[in-house]
Amino acid sequence: MPPKVDPTKCDGCQGESEPLCEQVCPGNLMTLHKETMKAIIRDKSDCWDCMTCTKACPRQAIQTVLQYQLAYFPGKLIPLVGTNSVTWTSIDCHGRVERFVMKTLVSGDDEDED
């Protein structure tokens, strides 16, 4: 389920030493394209689908898409990260929407820690 980056939304995290998706990827897979200055995945087949990049993107530019060999087009799953929760929107191939709000932290204290 590799991350796909929408170039109209991604700004390469200007001002950061490296884009947030590149900072967080456990597989060292996200990087900045030298010419377009947009985030890309080095090798889409190496992704584990943890969705860390998708959740970390400050511009919601990343969508995690299942490999077509596994799943039909065009279902979507969109996380929106809040302070103490994530709101997930699932849209199936027929456009049916389901929403889930999942608690992530008891308090937001350690959210800013780095």
Binding site: T64, L66, A71, Y72, G75, L77, P79, D92
Partner: peptide, 18 residues
């Protein structure tokens, strides 16, 4: 589905797509 979103969100997408 909520429980899987906390651990393996891709299966929720997989179920939706299939």
């Amino acid at each position: 589905k909520g429980q899987y979103l906390d651990m393996s969100p891709c299966i929720v997408l997989y179920w939706g797509c299939n």
